[in-house]
Structure formats: C-alpha cells, structure tokens
Amino acid sequence: MNPIFQGVLTIVIGVGGCIAYFYLSNFILDRFIFPAKGKDPGKNINRANQVRPWLFMFPAVFALGLYLAYPVVGSFWRSLYNRSGDEFIGFGNYANLFASDEFQTAFFNNILWILFVPAASTFLGLLAAQLTDKLRWGNIAKSLIFMPMAISFVGASLIWKFVYAVDEDIGLINAVRDSFGMEPLDVLQIPFWNNFFLMVILIWIQTGFAMVILSAALRGIPEETIEAAIIDGANPFQLFFKIMVPQIMGTIVVVWTTITVLVLKVFDIVYTMTGGNFGTDILPSYMMSFMFRDDGRATAVAFVIMIVVLPVMIWNIRQARKELR
C-alpha cells in the first residue's frame, strides 16, 4: 500500500477512532450503564462521574503504560538474559560491560557530556538572555540564537562538519589555521578534546532553549529588588550575580536538569560525526552499536542510562508533588 495513502488513512482512523471512542464511551456510560433516571438517578450520576475520569484517561494511560512503563521492566528483564535471549545469566551482561574498555570510555565520556553540556548551555543561555533583554533588536537576536532548536541533530552535525572539516577550503577552523600558516588539523581526532568539539554542537542547539526560559524568568524578577540594589550602589555585575541569579535559581535548575536528561538521549551527533571512533563514544551511541546484534547488552546499556537519569527523575517527581499541594 502506498505510504501516503496509508498515512492519510491512519490519520482518519486514528482521529476518528479517538473521537468515536470518547463520544461512544461517554454515551454508553450515561445512557445504559448508569442512566440518570430510574429508581435512584442521583446515585447513578455520581457513579458515572466516578467512572468517567478513567474513560477519559484510558487511551493515554494504556499507551503510556505500554510504551514507556512496561519497557522499563521489559528492558531490565531482557538485560538479564544472554545474547539470543534463551539463557538467564543474571548480571552477566552488566559484568561484561563494566569490564570492557569501550564501555568505560563511553561511560566516562557521557559523564563529561553530562557535566559540560548543561553547564555551558545554561551559562551561555543566561548570558544571552541577560544581554539581549536590554537591546532594541534583542528579539531578533533571540530568534536567531533560538533557531538551532528547530534543526535536527543530524542536520546540525552536517552543519558543523563544514566547520570542522580538515580541508582548509571547507572547514572554517582549518581555514583560520591556514591563514596563520598552520598545518590543517582534524579536530575530531584529537584524543580527549574531540569530545568537546562534539559537545559544542549540542550546546549550540540547546543554548537557545535555555535562553528563552531564563529570559522569561529574568523578566519575572520584581523591579523593586533591582532598584534597591542600584540605589545601594551595586555595580552591574553584582546586580546580576548577587541579586538576579539567586532569584531565578529554581528556573536555572529546571533548565539544567532538562538539558541533562536530553544529553542522555542524544546519540545522533556522535553517530553522524565520528561513529563513536577516536574515543568519542557515549552511552546512547554505544548502545546503538549493539542494537539488532546483541539485545542483552543493548538493554543492559539502556538500563545503565536509566540509572544515571534516576536522580533527576526522582527530583522532578518530588518537585511536581510539591506544586500539587
């Protein structure tokens, strides 16, 4: 079947199906199961209203359960089995992983990414937010810094290939080196530092995100605190670091954790730029090298990522519960 036709059909069936489900299930509930008539209409209405939230939520809860909650358990269970999945080997996959050099490299690199990318993106985002807030053309500047958000990681990687390329007629870095009479250099092959050149790509993408949110937070700061600080003789730097930043600390933490979680999902950049060679592997790309080949190891790596994310998850849930009260 032609995929376009199939797509249109899916939209019709999907959307139509959703509407039909919600409409019919409510209709049946109100008309036949607990009709608002008969002996005790009030009681029936109350009962119907107790069931209704679950009708509303059933498709979402089902999909969330199947596509996100079940895989956590399913992946963990699978990671306890061997490559073909027929022999239970306990934590054998994990033991193998932690013993392998590549995994250690990937793990170490991932720690670097987690430390460096959110820090740099948040810092640059905060800087951009504060600087552009004062300018007349600030909104245009913001729009341009925000733009990479729309670009895929693959597209961004290609864009940066035009900066990192060895050929001095293509790569900007080597063009600059060339104009100073230096030899061309493949920055993606410099041990250790090549990781940072890859991180730059993600920072380039995420700074806009940090900037947009922090800029809104900066605008939310009460004017009086700033006025008071200026009257007391604070210079612009003191004003920024001692008055403004502490007041938006909550938002900074949210931005920081959001980017941290994202870092653990992104395998595209490493995959496109180096394929994990030259010591640049990170956990998500390391996992992809086992995908379709050794499900036991692949799920084990995925579960390691899950454990790394866990503190952020717990912190987020606690924040959400605090807000609910």
Partner: peptide
C-alpha cells in the same frame, strides 16, 4: 490523581533507549 500526575512527570524523563528492544 496525584499519583498519576507524578507518574507522567516521571515518564517524561524515561530514556527512549529503554523502549527500543522490548517494543
């Protein structure tokens, strides 16, 4: 209700990688 909201917030950060093989 509170529990479900917390669950949604939690699922927000579940790494996609976990879902690949089982799904």
């Amino acid at each position: 209700r509170g529990l479900l909201i917390a669950a949604v917030v939690g699922l927000l950060v579940v790494p996609l990688q976990l879902a690949l093989v089982p799904l």
